[in-house]
Design a protein around this nucleic acid. Structure first.
Length: 423
DNA sequence: TCTGGGGTCCTAGGACCC
DNA sequence: TCTGGGGTCCTAGGACCC
């Protein structure tokens, strides 16, 4: 048996934890750059506001309804997420940290101690009391069913008390019959449309469709989803996250970038940040990819989107190598006279140590003392962000993202408070 | 009339998730 | 004026191998 625990309206809830004055008030959280809505609490949803609405379009209505609006504050969300996960780890034998606001629990053995539903309520009560966040709990024999049980717990909080146990086949069929197929985990808009054309509109019909038919029209992913709905586990429980295959750092700019030097600063900054993430994963990479693009919504000027990649001879984790490669890629794809909206750097082809395989006649040698130098940089920046950076990243960073309604870093150190630039 | 069989690796693109 | 960021997995097709 698995449980899926998921924090209700996570980002919006985090913003209210330290602001009791917001109780009962609608709250929304905006994406990076204060672009669009990415989290809304129950009150904001009840007013008819929707996910992904551009802020500039709904701003007047938000003001009119006295909605509290926040820029996203990832330092705060990550810290509250950590507290949730730590609490869950104390309660369940095994925990899979699935996303910033959800975890699967392996409930093996729990039923010997108490009814599973009781356990679900204990989890809920404890998180409410200790972390001041409200969660939904779904319990079922497969991950996909646990997801649906969780959905039901959140959709009918009054009737369910926030906990749904979906262990009996009869209850499973009832719920599946009720839910449209696009609500199933793994079925997105495109696949739902295709399923609907085949006459499969609810989750029960997908569960009962012949495997051969599903396999004929879809990939093995859909077959697994259908089997999971029938109660046959196909998705493994991953207690330890597998090592990443790619690391990406990208941002939209606060204003369109047209200047080559500004773009170099941005790409250098993302490369440095990606390198930092790489070192935190204790990996070395060989492939560096840079992409730049204009806005698809921009009616002025032609749309342009391009990327280039560079493969190093020797895997590296040194910011200097990664930045140099990222800038080489930029030079290959940079075209003047575009209004760029976004750029990013992707690292790939990872190795767990620097010198994986030296080329027989290789002129390239690993940099001397690279690891030590990078460690010094990381340690300094860990104490206080942006203590030390490479000159190429720039100082003014006019293109850096906008976060005009950022909440304070309630839970973390003073050093992490939003930095005020003194010029 | 009629031209093998069995693999690997890589990449681009499409789908999904939060 | 203004529309996020960071990931995963699978498949088809091409190049290449013996």
């Amino acid at each position: 048996m698995y449980a899926l625990v998921d924090v209700n309206t996570f980002y919006a809830s985090c913003e209210t934890v330290f602001r009791p004055d917001l109780k009962g008030r609608p709250v929304v959280v905006l994406s990076n750059n204060d672009g669009c809505v990415i989290s809304l609490n129950r009150e904001a949803k009840a007013l008819g506001f929707r996910m992904a609405s551009p802020w500039f379009k709904i701003r007047p209505q938000l003001q009119q309804h006295n909605v509290a609006v926040f820029s996203s504050n990832y330092a705060l969300y990550a810290d509250l997420s950590r507290r949730v996960m730590e609490t869950l780890e104390e309660m369940a034998p095994r925990v899979e940290n699935y996303s910033i606001d959800e975890a699967f629990l392996d409930l093996s053995g729990v039923a010997n101690c108490m009814p599973l539903k009781t356990f679900g309520h204990q989890v809920r009560n404890r998180l409410q009391k200790e972390v001041h966040l409200s969660v939904g709990v779904g319990i079922a024999p497969t991950k996909t069913l646990a997801k649906l049980a969780n959905l039901a717990a959140k959709r009918w909080p009054q009737q369910t008390g926030g906990v749904v146990e979906l262990t009996s086949p009869r209850h499973q069929r009832q719920l599946l019959h009720y839910l449209p197929v696009e609500e199933v985990w793994g079925v997105g808009g495109r696949l739902a449309k295709k399923l609907n054309l085949m006459g499969i509109t609810n989750a029960l019909q997908l569960a009962e469709a012949p495997t051969a038919l599903i396999r004929k029209h879809f990939s093995v992913v859909m077959e697994r989803t259908a089997r999971e709905l029938r109660g046959e586990p196909c998705l493994a429980f991953d207690e330890f996250p597998p090592t990443k295959q790619h690391i990406l750092c990208s941002r939209s700019f606060s204003e369109r970038v047209t200047d080559y030097m500004a773009m170099r600063e941005a790409v250098s900054t993302y490369a440095a940040r990606a390198a930092e993430k790489l070192r935190r994963e204790h990996q070395y990479c060989r492939e560096i990819n840079t992409f730049i693009r204009t806005s698809p919504h921009d009616s002025r000027g032609a749309w342009y989107s391009n990327g280039a990649s560079y493969t190093l001879q020797i895997p590296t984790q040194d910011t200097r190598d990664i930045t140099a490669a990222a800038l080489r890629c930029l030079d290959a794809i940079w075209r003047p006279d575009h209004r760029y909206m976004k750029a990013g750097v992707i690292l790939g082809d990872f190795f767990s140590q620097g010198v994986a395989q030296l080329h027989l006649f290789d002129a390239f040698q690993p940099r001397h003392n690279s690891e030590k130098l990078m460690k010094v940089c990381d340690d300094l920046n860990k104490k206080a962000r942006n203590t030390l950076w490479f000159a190429g990243q720039g100082i003014q960073q006019e293109w850096a993202m906008k976060r005009e309604m950022l909440s304070p870093a309630w839970t973390t150190r003073i050093a992490d408070l939003p930095r005020v630039r003194i010029s």
